[in-house]
Design a protein around this nucleic acid. Structure first.
Ligand code: SF4
Ligand code: SF4
Lengths: 146, 146
DNA sequence: ACAATATAGGACTGAAATAGTCGTATATAT
DNA sequence: ATATATACGACTATTTCAGTCCTATATTGT
């Protein structure tokens, strides 16, 4: 329920990894490092590069590099690319075209749900890749201090 | 992706309906009004009454009545009852016990995800059943004025 | 040229969550 | 009694999600 997909998680982990390395990183390396499926990760990275978040280099010494600054990549961007349009209900986008839901016209929760979706969107938009790196490093420092 | 389940939607619609009527309402009436599955709605209302949001009356003239004031019922309450604990990732609850995820120890997005979950929780907690009714009525007024 | 390496892309499978159905038991007002 | 309404568990169907497999294409180094 209200789960973030593994694809999105892998995408965020990979982007963070690439951002921190500062150079091109191969999918194989990331998959091995974190012990996750190479095939699935490859699909994710491909989607991210098609969407313009990564630049892909083929061949030997190839891999992926960031196409944007970490401050210009938000969690919302990543979710939209890897999970499709963010929609908490069938009807909760602003295109007021048929939503397919049987209730539709009689529905009394449409507006509240749109409001909630808007606020969720804000949450996802307000965290960038750069923020994620800082948060993680802070915690790593803390665990060293303790 | 990040969808609110039909069960939760039905729950919110039913609660709103019951709140606005002010008296006990039978599941059958709600199901017919909105054209949704009676069996599924019955299950939902049963869960809500077991959780203490509704009082159930058996027999003729029976039905469900609110057990709390609309200002004391949040969207978060409803989601937790009908969809289980709100968790956007396998590990994003505060019980730092094994999360089952293979990445776990090496994972660099745990903390950011927990932060996002916390903010989402705030969004859901900050809207009550009473708010939902007001939002809906406002829109109904608007559509009359236009 | 050629072999090694890395991404690109589609088809496919298995597992899990969601949505919905059905049958039966229990409580209660009239 | 009986009609009505909730309670509850088992079951099925549908859809999503996660993961695999195979083949094609691009690039680099020798
Ligand atoms: S019309 Fe209402 S019930 Fe249907 S998808 Fe939209 S919010 Fe959900
Ligand atoms: S450890 Fe990381 S990848 Fe695994 S569930 Fe938690 S956040 Fe997701």
């Amino acid at each position: 329920m209200l789960r973030i997909s593994k694809k999105a998680e892998y995408g965020m982990i990979a982007l963070q990894r690439i951002a921190q390395s500062g150079e091109t990183v191969a999918a194989k390396e990331i998959a091995e490092d974190f012990g996750i499926s190479f095939d699935l990760l490859a699909k994710v990275l491909n989607q991210l590069s098609k969407a313009g978040l990564l630049i892909a280099y083929h061949g030997i010494q190839g891999g992926y590099a960031l196409a944007k600054k970490p401050t210009d990549i938000t969690v919302a961007d990543i979710l939209v690319i890897l999970e499709g349009t963010l929609r908490i209900t069938d009807c909760a986008d602003h295109s007021h075209e048929e939503c397919g839901c049987s209730i539709d016209a009689k529905c009394s929760i449409k507006t509240p749900m749109q409001l909630i979706q808007e606020r969720m969107k804000n949450v996802f938009e307000s965290m960038t890749l750069a923020d994620m790196i800082v948060k993680t490093q802070t915690v790593q420092l803390h665990s060293i201090q303790i």
